[in-house]
């Protein structure tokens, strides 16, 4: 029974997403303002102008679990950033704590280079697996932040308490850190230690706020609709359970 409901949820969300993507062409979905992304846009411009890099920490999420979702967002952000920063010849650097994520990041960066007709150079340095365990990943990322003239740190992916070390390295360098994760511990850390924390679903809106493509706006619209459907369902189901139907 629950399996069937799961499939139903999947199909409904898929249908909604496709429909809303098509509808975006007629009427774009207006998004609320999120300070973090306003700052990010400005910081990217300044970083590119200043010849500094942008660092994306993709986390250490296992590819074969639901942690992969936030890492996908991190990869999407990396892709957009590389499109901007390649113009200034300062491509972003990506650090990860998982081999698969590193490969995906390298593939994304390579594609970005090819889009600009540039030969991909130093990919092993630009997208690295800096450590295979949470702490070694955090320590490795921290050292990359210090060594690579980074101006903006984006921590989007599955992280844990070790994220505090990355935020601290970023803070000590005077960087802007924008951080979001699917992990609650990481979110708690970001609440205190990041310049601009992204809570819960906010991290999943990063790509939409960066490029505003139809599919990303449609994603957020889908999430909005699904969320209200969930809210209605919770209220309705609670009442039904309470009256014993």
């Amino acid at each position: 029974m629950t399996d069937g409901i799961g499939l139903l949820i999947f199909l409904a969300l898929s249908l909604l997403l496709v429909l809303l993507t098509v509808m975006q062409r007629k009427r774009s979905y207006t998004l609320r303002e999120l300070l973090a992304f306003q700052r990010l846009r400005r910081a990217i411009g300044l970083a590119v102008e200043d010849g500094k890099r942008i660092h994306v920490a993709l986390g250490r999420g296992n590819l074969l679990s639901e942690n992969f979702g936030s890492a996908l967002i991190g990869l999407g952000v990396l892709k957009r950033l590389s499109s901007v920063a390649l113009i200034a010849d300062h491509p972003p650097i990506a650090t990860s704590g998982e081999g698969g994520l590193m490969l995906l990041a390298q593939t994304g960066l390579q594609a970005a280079h090819q889009r600009f007709g540039l030969p991909p150079q130093d990919l092993p340095q630009k997208a690295q697996l800096v450590g295979v365990t949470p702490l070694s990943f955090a320590v490795g990322s921290g050292m990359e932040i210090r060594d690579e003239r980074v101006a903006v740190d984006l921590l989007i992916g599955h992280l844990g308490s070790e994220a505090a070390l990355i935020c601290d390295a970023s803070h000590q360098q005077g960087n802007l850190s924008i951080a979001g994760s699917d992990d609650l511990t990481a979110q708690a850390v970001f609440a205190a230690a990041a310049s601009h924390p992204l809570f819960g679903e906010e991290a999943y809106a990063a790509v939409a706020y960066m490029d505003g493509e139809a599919v990303h706006r449609a994603s957020l619209q889908t999430q909005d609709l699904a969320r209200w459907a969930i809210i209605l369902f919770l209220i309705f189901a609670s009442v039904v359970k309470l009256i014993g139907l």
């Binding site: 999947f10 590819l63 698969g100 969930i230 919770l234 189901a237």
Partner: peptide, 28 residues
């Protein structure tokens, strides 16, 4: 495969259990 694990895991491992947990106190 990762996406399937992501979608399946998120729906079955988080979404539905959490929804169920919110409702369960009302199931007297």
């Amino acid at each position: 495969v990762s996406l399937a694990a992501l979608i399946g895991g998120a729906i079955q491992g988080t979404l539905m259990p959490q929804l169920s947990a919110v409702i369960s106190p009302f199931d007297l």
